[in-house]
């Protein structure tokens, strides 16, 4: 989350991805950094025990959202 926020602040497009249960934690971090409306992506939890193939499938499932957020950035639509 922090890396994404700092890259965006430096003008470099970035996307932060968290698993769903960490949404409140992500919001708190964004608020601490003065960007409470910072947009980030979520995927199902957990991920640490997935196989490589399962992880690839998760990445495939979210890639369109990643590209969309990279293009639209943090500015409201």
């Amino acid at each position: 989350m922090l890396d994404g926020i700092l890259l965006e602040k430096a003008g470099i497009p970035a996307v932060s991805i968290i698993t769903e249960p960490f949404r409140p934690t992500g919001k708190e971090m964004a608020t601490n950094w003065g960007v409470p409306e910072y947009r980030f992506l979520e995927m199902r939890h957990p991920i640490s025990n997935l196989t490589e193939a399962q992880l690839d499938a998760r990445a495939d499932a979210i890639i369109d959202q990643v590209l969309w957020l990279l293009k639209t950035g943090q500015a409201p639509e």
């Binding site: 409140p24 934690t25 708190e28 971090m29 601490n32």
Partner: peptide
Amino acid sequence: LNTRPGGLDR
């Protein structure tokens, strides 16, 4: 430091 359960204390 707002380190509270469920937020910044997970």
